[in-house]
Amino acid sequence: MATKKFMFLNRKAPYGTVYALESLEVVLIGAAFEQDVSLAFIGDGVYQIAKNQNTDGIGMKNFSPTYKALGDYEVTKLYVEKESLEARGLTLDDLMDLTWEDEDDDYAEKPSIRLVSAAELAAVFDEQDVVLSF
């Protein structure tokens, strides 16, 4: 099958609604299809990858560790919109440390999160073949 550019567009916070969790489930399944996969976190979507999530008190599964496994699935392009992060008073330090191992570079650990401006992200969107919005 042909390779297409797939973008998973995440704009909702976790736990309040199921979209973040079920989006992640699609990403994991989609990884098996060997497409060119990217994720974008915009608006409240940036809260999906916030550090220190603890769901003990709400009886829901904390699925944030799953984002750390994305690198093992060769999902290595996680775009975070700078404007969205700043509007929420957050910096990269508030986000989980998400990395992948580059086997072409002696398994060097590289950051998966790419902090980009709205204009840069717009250009990335424009290149996509399929955008799945959650």
Binding site: R11, I42, G43, A118, A122, F125
Partner: peptide, 15 residues
């Protein structure tokens, strides 16, 4: 919601 403002911010020229 911020759907429209986000869309406008993240749409390239000519969209």
């Amino acid at each position: 919601r911020d759907s429209l403002s986000s869309c406008i911010r993240l749409a390239v020229k000519g969209s």
